[in-house]
Computed example of a mutant assay.
Amino acid sequence: MIGKVVTSGTFSLDGGTWEVDNNVWIVGSAEEVVVIDAAHDAEAILAAVGGRRIKAIVCTHAHNDHINAAGALVDATGATVRLHPGDDVLWRMEYGRERTYAPLADGETLTVGGIRLEVLHTPGHAPGAVCLHAPDLGTVFTGDTLFQGGPGATGRSYSSFEVIIDSIRKRLLSLPPETVVRTGHGPETTIGAEAPHLEEWIARGY
């Protein structure tokens, strides 16, 4: 039901560029899937999808390293890109007006292969950042909102430390502690493992 492809490329913002490895999540059934965060390498993603139908390409946010393979996936499959409109300014940095997306809304439920994905708007790392909670699978796909060891970076344009902490506290730490956190970069963790460290993150200005 859940697959992962790790792709490599660059993240660019505010005049800087960094080498990154991204987790691309593929969620669904033997017939259809959604791709969460189409990063860097459309061919690798298509190989992992196999012959299944891509119902949607869902973006946890629109930093270029999370969307730069979305255009090629759309061209190859005709799938629709879904993105919270709060990240329109970041989307346009990568695609201008040439490509469009269908807006995601907080509280919306996506269904693919019998799996429910509940959209949680979690701004902070980016204005339109979302997490996708799959309660029946006991997991949440957090993009760059929450990692093993702390929140996503907030030192660049369109980000806010105070906002991301509020998002994590209200939207993520309220999930069951056994919920597996599947991140946009790096290893998995659980809500229960991260919850005790909230005040430490705040004190450190993580």
Rank of each mutant, 00 (worst) to 15 (best):
F161R: 11
R156G: 01
I2D: 02
A30T: 13
E118Q: 14
A129L: 00
P127C: 03
P151N: 10
S12R: 15
T80C: 06
H185L: 00
V74F: 11
L46G: 10
A56R: 14
T142H: 00
P176V: 09
A134D: 04
V119H: 05
P135L: 09
G149V: 08
N64R: 11
D41P: 12
M93D: 14
A70N: 06
A44E: 10
A70R: 05
A203E: 13
D87L: 07
P151M: 02
V74N: 11
L13Q: 13
Q148V: 13
I165G: 00
A153N: 11
E19G: 10
I36W: 02
I36K: 01
G138D: 11
A193K: 14
A42E: 11
D75C: 07
A79F: 11
D144L: 03
I165K: 00
V58A: 07
T60D: 02
E178K: 10
R53K: 13
D75L: 12
I26H: 04
M1L: 08
D136A: 14
I191D: 05
H66R: 03
I45L: 12
L83F: 05
K170W: 10
L104V: 06
T189D: 06
W25T: 02
A47K: 14
H84N: 12
A203L: 11
G113N: 07
E43T: 13
D75Y: 10
A48T: 09
L83K: 03
W18C: 00
